[in-house]
Structures are given as structure tokens and as C-alpha cells.
Design a protein around this nucleic acid. Structure first.
Lengths: 271, 271
DNA sequence: CAAATAGTGTCTCTAAGACAATATCAC
DNA sequence: GTGATATTGTCTTAGAGACACTATTTG
């Protein structure tokens, strides 16, 4: 045991070249558009947080929030810290997307990125949310597979439209990976990271767990259903949705009134 | 653009402290025990490759194969390289398990591990397999949840028995993580890595994709079923298994004869 | 023939999808 | 009452699990 102590004290990791490690986060939110009629349910939009790069490389282009790991924290803590720094909100969940480590992915050098999905509720952003900085914006997301097999990722905010084109990559490594055919003006390999993140989010949305994080503590079943539909870009019959979600929620007894139609019971996530 | 070039040429990543990054691999194989009767199907055992550490720290203890990333490769390539160096076999698939980055996980310093599951067939090992080095051995695996909620991981090779005790950790980060209550003589946090790897492997085994890699190109449906049963530690009714796997395999027309009972058709993985 | 695995047919049960009907509010 | 969403009932269908039966080979 003495020899182990001795060994460790003389041990130098710095003999080997080491990569820099970052955590990058695709933070999603569901934003509601203005009501078109006083009694109509507002349309939901899936939104993604992007940061305008202030420095080189990719200066002025849009990128996922993220940054270098600091000593003493885990990659997950780093991801949470980065999101908090950017939004002032601490997300309640974090889904791993994958490690991006292609040697040429960052012109600054050898930089490995750990990508995560995080989910934030509109309520949180409204309350504690970021000051409306020009360099951090929520973009509406659309992502679909064209008949050609290509994937089209479109991110929109105001006048700004970023359109990326990707191809699914077959790997022996599981997890869908994407190859960028056109980055659409996104920095680094972030178009591929966002595509992978959306794939993860959509897969998760099926299993009632992640979707609660988009909503406040108390919610109606219809709003929950709309969240799922928005993410998966597919609609469900209400009767079936309620049956499937029944095991994951519990009644609060309270009702949401004054919406111009029958009041809806407010539910809460079970357990 | 000139200013970007200028920026990059003057850019120094070395200003920040950086972690070392490793890939560690849980390489699984299904080994068959000797037949107890000339016509009986041999019993299968799930096995895991462990390496006896030759140097400090954890000298003489057993660990997962793995090693430091080299410049110019991805984490997945690093994982494959490590497995190949150890077994002389190139696995055909690699499943991500997660990133292990707790600051205290390695006494040598700040070292982040990317963990993967890989699957190797007994055939490959027999043919090109490693020379029977004392410091690399296939251990039989058993892993189950006790009534207390604890998980018991037992690894056995010859006289050597490693028994680790773990607890499921609730994280906001998805993916089952485990906390080590007793490492059972495994190096580093590898007991927790192995537990997570087994969880991934079991989840995958349901979906007929990974399990083919345990077998040679041509196989009988019963042998495929036994592989799945061995991994999941649960049995299936043959009629149902055949129905479920039907879409993933195709007939070769060949038969396996001379086994003391009705010959079985050899199948091949479809597509 | 006995032992053992190979392979098929079919009943049941459950969960998911589709559709239809009823309930209740705000204006 | 009208327009809208809330909520429940039920028919159908696809798939998983269970069981029973038949088929074939080798010692």
C-alpha cells in the first residue's frame, strides 16, 4: 500500500496530451402562440435555445449553449451550470444524447462535446427567465424526414431562418447519428447535435416522463396531450391519450375555469 | 475571415486545465458449458471480460478493459481499439452506456470515462481469440435485484469470485446509475459501470438486434432464444419467440444435424 | 422405442387505435 | 343557443403470453 501511495504521488497525467471537454445542451421549451379566439386553445410550438456566438470561431453564428468542463464537476453538472448561466433556470431533467468526438469537429483543436437535452417550462422562463438578450433566443423548431431520406431541420426566430440538411448515418454504435450536408448557418457540428437531440426527445416523449417538465406543477390533460403532440408532430385521440397517461397523473380536484368552455380538471404528476 | 484565421492561429486551449479521457468497455460473450448428455442442449453463461491490473492504482485487482483516448480518434474508435488490443477481435457493435465523470472516481486525478457495451461471439474468440493470458479472463456474470432493493453483481472465474453490492441511484439525468456499496474487489468505479452496462444490454436484448452478435452467421432459432434468455435471465415460450423474431431472420435452407434429435433449420440475420 | 429438441396451431388477454356520444361552461 | 373543449363508453384489432399438439432425429 505504501508503494501505491508512492506511485500516485509521482504520477503525472500531464505526460499525455489531453482533449478539452465541453457539455452542450439542447434546451427545449414549448411556447404558446397568442390565442386566435378567446375560447380556442393556443397553438403550441417547440422551441430551442440558441446563443449567438460573440467570438471566433463561427463569430456571429448561432450555437447551442455550452462550455468547458471545470475541475470538480461532472459533465452533467457542467451542462446544468451552462444552462443556468444562460437562462437563469435550473432544468429538472437532463437526457444524454451522446458524445461528439470527431477530431475535426472544432477548429480550435481537440475538443470533445457531451450533448444533453434539457426541458424547461414556459412558466419558469417567464418568471425567472433571462433578460431578453440579443444573443440568446428561443427558436421554433421543425424537423422532418423528406421523401429523399434527407432530414430537414429548420430553426426560426423573427426574421432569422436557419435551415440545415442532414443525412442519417449508419453506425455500429447505436444511437442515431447524423451527418451534416448543409449546416444552415449553425456553428460547429451543432446541426447534427440538434438533430440527435430531437431524436432523443421524440423517443422520450412517448413514455410520459419527460413531457411533464414542459408544464407547470398543475396542468390539464389536454395541455399535456398538446405537449406530446407538438413534440412528436403527430396527433392522438383524446380518449386514448387519457387512458395511457392515467397511471402517471393524479387529480388535484381543482379546475381551470373561465376559458369559454367546460372547465378542465387540473392534474399533477403522480409520485 | 482573415480575423478568424488570425484568431485560430493565436488560440491556445492549453490555457485551461483539461481532464484525461478514457473509453472503458464491458465486452460480453455467451459461453457454452460442456454438454451434460450427448443430446442435451449445453447451458449458456453470460461472460464479461476483465483485466487484472498490472500497475498502480488498484494493482492486482480486476478492471474493465479500456484506456486513454489518443489524438485523432473518436471515443468509439478508442473503445474498439482497446477491445481489439485485448482480445484480437473487432466487435461488430458498440452500445453507449454513459459518461462517468465524478471528480473522485480515479485516484490518479481528473479522468473521465466513456463506457460502452460490446458484444463478441464465442466463435470469434475461439478463432482469433486472445492467448490465454493470466491477466485477461472471461468471468461469468450474475446480476440481480435483491428484495432489499440492493443489486448483487457476482463475477466468477475459476477460484476467483468478485461480489459487488450496489444501489440504484435516482438521478434527474435518466439512465439508471448505480452507487457502489461494496466494490467486491473491482477497480475504480467499475462495479457501477458494469451494473449500468448490464442494464443497457438487458434493455437491448429485447429488441432483437444486439443478440445476433453473440452468435455465428448461421444459427438455429433455439440457440438465438437461449442467448436472449441467458441475457434477460427469463424464459420465453418457443412458439412466441419464433413469432417475435420472424421479421428479423431468414432461412438458409441448411440444417444442423447429428444432435440426437430433430435437425434444426439454420437461419441468418435478415438484411 | 426413448429422449430430446424442432416446429405449428390456436385460445386468451391486454393494450392501443378509432369512433361516437354526452357534459359543461362563457359568451 | 352556439362554439368550444372535457370526459366517458365501447368496438375493433394487433400483439404478447400460455398451452397443447405434432414432427424428426439419434442412440
Amino acid at each position: 500500500m505504501d508503494s501505491e501511495k508512492e506511485f500516485l504521488s509521482g504520477y503525472k497525467l500531464s505526460d499525455y496530451e489531453r482533449p478539452s471537454v465541453t457539455s452542450d445542451v439542447a434546451a427545449f421549451m414549448i411556447g404558446s402562440e397568442d390565442k386566435t379566439s378567446y375560447r380556442k386553445y393556443p397553438k403550441n410550438k417547440l422551441q430551442l435555445l440558441l446563443i449567438k456566438r460573440g467570438g471566433h470561431p463561427f463569430k456571429g453564428m448561432w450555437a447551442l449553449p455550452g462550455g468547458f468542463m471545470q475541475k470538480g464537476e461532472t459533465v452533467e453538472e457542467c451542462a446544468l451550470r451552462e444552462i443556468f448561466e444562460e437562462t437563469n433556470v435550473m432544468p429538472s431533467s437532463l437526457l444524454p444524447v451522446g458524445v461528439f468526438s470527431e477530431p475535426e469537429r472544432d477548429p480550435r483543436g481537440w475538443i470533445i462535446s457531451n450533448a444533453y437535452v434539457s426541458v424547461i417550462s414556459e412558466e419558469q422562463v417567464r418568471q425567472k427567465g433571462m433578460d431578453d438578450a440579443d444573443d440568446a433566443q428561443w427558436f421554433s423548431v421543425s424537423f422532418d424526414r423528406a421523401d429523399s431520406g434527407e432530414y430537414h431541420l429548420t430553426l426560426e426566430y423573427d426574421e432569422i431562418i436557419l435551415k440545415a440538411i442532414l443525412e442519417e448515418e449508419t453506425t455500429r454504435f447505436r444511437r442515431t447519428k447524423f451527418r451534416i450536408k448543409d449546416s444552415g448557418g449553425l456553428a460547429f457540428d451543432h446541426a447534427a447535435v440538434i438533430a440527435a437531440a430531437l431524436t432523443v426527445l421524440r423517443a422520450e416523449a412517448k413514455y410520459f416522463d419527460t413531457i411533464f417538465d414542459f408544464l407547470p406543477e398543475k396542468f390539464t390533460l389536454t395541455s399535456l396531450q398538446k405537449v406530446q403532440e407538438t413534440i412528436m408532430n403527430a396527433s392522438v385521440v383524446p380518449a386514448n391519450f387519457r387512458r395511457m397517461v392515467a397511471g402517471y397523473v393524479e387529480e388535484t380536484g381543482e379546475y381551470l375555469r373561465g376559458e369559454g368552455h367546460r372547465p378542465a380538471m387540473l392534474y399533477r404528476r403522480k409520485k
